[in-house]
């Protein structure tokens, strides 16, 4: 860094720090008097339970979206034109409508009437199960497209070479196509998984007691402000940052290899 860019950087850093400092002073000045962190402490168990549910939803929907993503990928590459078209139509529908609509429509119109009773009888939390299923479907639709992009980016010669050495269609995917495609789509997949964790907060609209739902209840009951929203943001960061870091690390590792 030469002298000029050093000075420019310093000036920018000071400018940004001053602006943020001013904003924080303003906000805390207004809310500081009413902020009472003991409220959050009082509700710690509810918040903790909500956070654990969000963690559980994230893991379950992550696994679910991988399953659906693979199904959509294979469906779109099917040799049956009807299967391809149906997959295409479904993916378009899912990707062009809001998740909020899927959750409300999917829960109240489709799944709740169908499976709520049997699920409840079996001792399951029907909202949670259906919520995870709908979230998996939604993210799986995106993942399917990401995977398709990755698979189709592998040159034709690789498919041919794999066939030429005698691999079966399954082995072609397993040993040649997926390992290469996954490297290419890793950043996009990590981005999707971060979205998935954040999108899980929308499950509150069907009454799943996850982190956002419990925090909102706490806020409305105790008239909390900062002491509610700050932990809310931090709680999600704790979940999303590791995923982002992991993906950066994997990306770097694989970049050296190819």
């Amino acid at each position: 860094m030469n002298r000029r860019t050093l000075i420019a950087n310093l000036a920018a850093a000071i400018g940004i720090a001053v602006a943020l400092g001013w904003l924080f002073t303003l906000v805390f000045g207004m809310l500081g008097a009413q902020t009472d962190w003991s409220k959050a402490w009082e509700y710690r168990e509810t918040l903790w339970r909500g956070w654990l549910v969000t963690l559980g939803i994230s893991f379950a929907a992550l696994a679910g979206s991988v399953v659906f993503g693979l199904l959509f990928l294979l469906g779109q590459r099917s040799s049956l034109v009807v299967v391809r078209w149906c997959c295409r139509a479904f993916l378009e529908f899912v990707r062009d409508t809001p998740l909020l609509v899927h959750l409300l429509f999917g829960y109240f119109v489709i799944f709740a009437p169908l499976v709520s009773r049997p699920l409840a009888d079996a001792g399951w939390d029907d909202k949670l199960v259906i919520g995870i299923l709908l979230l998996s479907l939604f993210e799986g639709a995106y993942l399917g497209e990401i995977l398709r992009g990755g698979v189709e980016s592998i040159p034709k010669t690789q498919w041919e070479s794999a066939r030429a050495v005698g691999f079966s269609p399954y082995q072609v995917y397993r040993h040649v196509i997926f390992p290469q495609a996954l490297r290419r789509v890793l950043p996009a997949m990590a981005g999707l998984f971060v979205s998935l964790i954040k999108d899980s907060s929308l499950l509150n609209v069907i009454g799943v007691a996850e982190y956002f739902y419990n925090t909102r209840n706490f806020i409305s009951r105790s008239y909390a402000g900062l002491e509610g929203y700050v932990p809310l943001a931090l709680g999600y960061l704790v979940l999303t940052l590791p995923v982002a870091w992991l993906s950066h690390w994997l990306e770097k590792r694989f970049r050296h290899e190819t």
């Binding site: 010669t157 690789q158 070479s161």
Partner: peptide
């Protein structure tokens, strides 16, 4: 002609 090997 080329790209016979699996690059990974």
């Amino acid at each position: 002609q080329q790209f016979n090997l699996f690059p990974h």
